[in-house]
């Protein structure tokens, strides 16, 4: 009899402990994934960012692009609503631009990555996206054409 009461107490204690675990973010978010290509070629090495606009609440979100694909899942993904999208893609350059460096320093700077996409995809972006709350994972593909 006692042990039944005690185990009941245990259940209550555990449920109190677990009740503290919950999502406290002030915005809804959806995991977004997809592919990114430029002139038909998948972007091997880049970054994608979603900036809330038109009254959408929430912080910037995004992630790396590797082998033409990305997935945004940290902090729950991309906040639900309208976003302007900035995409950067990088390729290796030679060390020529730093040829006036001492050699031991130039080694550190060699292989600098240069962003090669037009500014209309990043600094002055024209890309937009709408993220919905209904789906668990939303697919967004970006086929960039200059």
């Amino acid at each position: 009899m006692h042990s039944i009461r005690l185990s009941g107490l245990l259940v209550v204690c555990v449920s109190i402990l677990l009740s503290g675990c919950g999502d406290t973010r002030p915005f809804q978010a959806t995991i977004v994934h997809g592919s990114v290509s430029f002139q038909g070629t998948p972007i091997q090495n880049g970054e994608i960012r979603f900036y809330p606009k038109d009254g959408t609440k929430g912080p910037v979100s995004g992630g790396p692009i590797k082998d033409g694909r990305f997935e945004v899942k940290t902090k729950g993904g991309v906040p639900v609503g309208n976003h302007s999208v900035k995409i950067q893609a990088f390729q290796t350059t030679t060390a020529k631009q730093n040829e006036d460096l001492p050699p031991e320093v130039a080694a550190d700077f060699s292989g600098d990555l240069q962003q090669f996409l037009p500014q209309k995809f990043n600094t002055n972006t024209e890309l937009t996206a709408e993220v919905f709350s209904s789906e668990k994972r939303q697919q967004l593909d970006f086929d960039l054409q200059d």
Binding site: Q44, N45, P64, T92, S110
Partner: peptide, 10 residues
């Protein structure tokens, strides 16, 4: 994820 493994390596 290290997107520049192999190339660039900076």
């Amino acid at each position: 994820i290290d997107p520049i493994d192999g190339v660039g390596e900076n």
